Measured scan of single mutants.
Amino acid sequence: NQASVVANQLIPINTALTLVMMRSEVVTPVGIPAEDIPRLVSMQVNRAVPLGTTLMPDMVRGYA
Rank of each mutant, 00 (worst) to 15 (best):
A16Y: 10
I32P: 00
I11D: 00
T15P: 01
V41M: 07
I11M: 04
P33V: 13
V27S: 08
T28S: 09
Y63R: 04
V49M: 06
Q44D: 04
S42A: 15
S4R: 02
V49S: 02
L19C: 06
G31E: 00
P50A: 13
Y63C: 03
P29L: 08
S24N: 09
M59A: 10
S24P: 12
A48S: 15
R47C: 06
A64H: 13
N8C: 05
I32A: 02
G62S: 06
N8R: 07
P57T: 04
N46H: 06
M59S: 06
L10P: 14
A34I: 11
A16P: 12
I11P: 01
L19D: 05
L51D: 14
G52E: 07
M22K: 00
L10K: 07
L40Y: 02
L51F: 14
G31T: 01
V26N: 07
V49Q: 02
R39K: 12
L17S: 00
M22Q: 01
P57K: 11
P38G: 12
I11N: 00
L55Q: 01
E25S: 06
N1K: 04
V6L: 12
E35R: 04
L10Q: 13
I13Y: 15
L55C: 02
V30M: 15
R61C: 15
A34F: 08
N14I: 02
L51E: 13
S42N: 15
D58M: 04
P33M: 13
V49I: 13
A34S: 15
T28C: 13
D36E: 13
S4Q: 02
P12F: 04
V20D: 13
G62E: 12
V45E: 01
G31Q: 03
A7S: 09
I37M: 14
I13E: 15
T28Y: 10
R23P: 02
Q2K: 04
V60E: 02
P57Q: 07
L51T: 13
A48C: 05
V27D: 02
P38A: 14
M56P: 01
L51P: 14
M43A: 11
I32H: 00
P38F: 10
L17C: 02
D36G: 06
A64I: 13
T54A: 06
G52F: 07
R39C: 08
V45W: 00
L19M: 15
P57V: 07
S42V: 03
P33K: 12
S24Y: 08
T18H: 06
S4M: 02
Q9S: 10
A64D: 07
Q9N: 09
Y63E: 04
P50Q: 13
M59L: 05
Q44F: 11
M43G: 03
R61F: 08
Q2C: 11
V60G: 00
A7K: 01
L40R: 00
L55M: 15
N46V: 15
A16L: 11
T15R: 06
L17P: 02
Q9M: 06
A3C: 14
M56H: 11
A3Y: 12
A7Q: 01
P38I: 14
A48N: 10
P12W: 05
M21Y: 06
L10M: 11
S4F: 03
G62A: 06
L55F: 12
V5T: 07
V41E: 09
G31P: 01
A16D: 10
T54V: 11
V41S: 04
G31K: 01
V60F: 03
A64Y: 03
P12V: 07
T15V: 10
G52D: 07
M59Y: 12
P29N: 08
G31M: 02
A34T: 09
D58Y: 05
T54P: 07
V26P: 15
R23S: 12
N8A: 08
N14A: 06
P50N: 12
G52V: 02
G52N: 13
E25W: 04
D58N: 12
S42C: 15
M21N: 12
M43E: 04
L17I: 10
P38R: 06
R23F: 05
P33Q: 08
D58C: 15
V26R: 03
A7D: 01
E35Q: 09
L55T: 01
A48D: 14
N8E: 13
A16N: 08
A48L: 10
V5G: 02
M22L: 12
A64E: 13
P12R: 11
L51W: 09
Q9A: 13
D36L: 08
P29D: 12
S4H: 02
T28M: 05
M21E: 02
N1R: 03
A3L: 14
V49A: 05
I13F: 07
P29H: 09
